[in-house]
Write a protein that binds this DNA or RNA. Structure first.
Lengths: 347, 347
DNA sequence: ATTCTTATCGGAAACGCTTCCATAAGAGCG
DNA sequence: CGCTCTTATGGAAGCGTTTCCGATAAGAAT
């Protein structure tokens, strides 16, 4: 079965290729009679339009590219699911690239996606360096770009962020309200200085504001640092427990580390939340599954994905010269057992 | 900046488009001098070849499509990572589609991928019905297809499977060796009859063989069924515990359900493995993180992804008329705390 | 009956690239 | 020095679409 093209259909239906194209694209000038004839020919021959040829002509790829910093991270896959669904509804394909935390891979993928003429780009997490992206956008076609959970200060790049400071504040305040008084923090990598301005970096600020607000201490004696990965959470927890004064609660900057902390606590025979309470950030699916279920700040993951698509579509339709958008979403408190006051026993 | 095409480069370098094409594609007949000149023109203009145009001419998409039944499932994302990396090395793109357990979505994606002229297809998990795939392959271009963890009996479709029967046998035998005697099973959906022949379906067979082998009972009184999802594991566990005789160990057909079972056990105040031991299947990353760490049968996830790519590439290069391959991988026992004999206390 | 609209359709160019084939210029040869 | 043979390069067709514009036919208007 040699591929059947629009010409074959035209011949089979006894019309011109222009006409076939018209009925495929729902042009309004085709007679019902011929339309039916063409439709029948299409069905009989099993014709499917060739998107590649169409793209070449229309200069639309009917596809967007996405680069994600870590496809095995549950947080990101939820975002991708949201994006993917939205895309599917507008009949667009998704080029998905996994950078696996490697910037060189991210750059390589960026290259390919541009060559692939995608009509939009979404960057999820920290997968592409600011400099790489900026230089691409400057010297090459300026495709619309929207970033999720990554804060770029590049012209024409829209950013979808989560209000980490406020989220951290809410999480910590929740701990305060539950009666905890020695509230430690397991933060992400050292911020400030030359480091990039993640949303996450400000989680420390939110924690501090909440404690200041409650008249509780927020000195560096109460903070340990991790790398956002599971193991580093365990290490940080052990670090915290080895200090002179033991915390009775810990706010952890993301769930993966909180899970690690939980593991360390279990190992040392400490109970959660009775001995040490815990609250995380991200609300990855696993967090509800561990014992005890982990309290956390929930992010609108699917919505982030969908929003990225909507923005992209708006940018694409608007053509060059749109205004980059910068939108921040709220994280909402998700209370589970790990952060509850020990006094009134919860079943 | 209007897009710079091969013509612009040719003009700028004072050569023909054919020559530019030749140097881009590393043809061997170009003089070093002109090659250098063209290279410089390319650099100065920031030219990047248009893959769409190239694809139209060469009839190669330089991309493969993948349809995954659930992108939020950690098992699948590991497979995808393997696939993605392999693809990246051969300079091919990945169209990734999430079917979200919906066959209609899977079909829709199949449609788009075919229109997109991908040069290969990999189907991960149960995302596309056998009938849909068969009809596509019959009536349309026969692109190479390789399925992972899904057993198709379609001509020209290669399958990469895991030896579930043997894995289940090993898992159950491990339980026997640890001294457990009342070993229950939480299986997947009802098999046999008209249901499709998952690799997973044979996990029941492996469990049974191990018990028969050890002279232990393997009647239906010891088996509960789930849907491979977390909640169903909890339900099945409660079901099992409500029966006259309580099991002292359970082999669960996948980790997600095992996690659910674990949750149910915790809720009822039962200890693992002291009261009931547990072993799962898949070795998703979370399994190492829960308390107690879950024993499981590890699958070569990344290798599956890479193998899919290699097969696909072989099929593509061989052109039509290749022989479909059917390869099965071994699952290996991953012992953690959840399945250890309670007698000698483990730290 | 003639002209003018209007609705419906076909011809053909173009999108950016690859590739086959022709061609021009040297090189080698008797 | 004319000839062939090689080597480097350019011309042009064509991949499967879309789309502009012109052609045709039918009916309306005169």
């Amino acid at each position: 079965m040699p591929k059947v093209t629009i010409k074959d259909v035209a011949a089979h239906a006894g019309v011109s290729v222009a006409t076939v194209s018209a009925v495929v694209n729902d042009a309004d000038w085709v007679t019902d009679a011929t339309r039916a004839r063409v439709r029948r020919a299409i069905a009989e021959l099993g014709y499917r339009p060739n998107r590649v040829a169409r793209s070449l002509k229309t200069k639309e790829a009917y596809a967007v590219g996405a680069i994600v910093s870590d496809i095995t991270n549950p947080f990101f896959t939820e975002v991708i699911r949201g994006l993917s669904h939205a895309l599917q509804e507008t009949d667009r394909n998704l080029f998905l690239c996994d950078a696996d935390h490697r910037f060189d891979l991210g750059d390589a993928h960026l290259d390919m996606l541009i060559e692939q003429q995608v009509d939009g780009l979404v960057i999820i997490g920290d997968s592409v360096r600011e400099a790489s992206l900026a230089s691409y956008l400057r010297r090459r076609s300026h495709v619309p770009v929207v970033a999720i959970e990554r804060d770029y200060t590049i012209d024409r790049v829209s950013c979808l962020l989560v209000d980490s400071e406020q989220g951290a504040y809410d999480a910590t305040t929740h701990l305060v309200e539950q009666g905890f008084r020695r509230i430690a923090l397991i933060a992400g990598p050292e911020e400030g200085a030359g480091s990039m301005t993640y949303g996450r970096a400000t989680r420390t600020a939110g924690w501090r504001r909440a404690l200041d607000n409650a008249g509780l201490p927020s000195s560096d004696d109460w903070v340990a640092r991790g790398t956002f990965r599971y193991e580093s959470g365990a290490t940080a927890m052990r670090d915290l427990l080895s200090r002179p004064e033991r915390p009775d609660a810990v706010f952890v900057a993301n769930d993966m580390m909180a899970l690690g902390a939980m593991h360390a606590l279990h190992q040392m025979g400490l109970r959660i939340p009775d001995d040490v309470a815990l609250i995380g950030f991200d609300d990855i699916p696993v967090s509800a599954l561990v014992a005890p279920p982990l309290s956390t700040m929930a992010m609108p993951k699917r919505r982030l994905g969908r929003a990225a698509h909507e923005l992209l579509r708006a940018h694409i339709e608007h053509g060059p010269g749109y205004d980059a958008v910068r939108r921040t979403f709220e994280a909402t408190l998700q209370v589970r057992s790990s952060s509850l006051a020990p006094a009134p026993v919860i079943s």
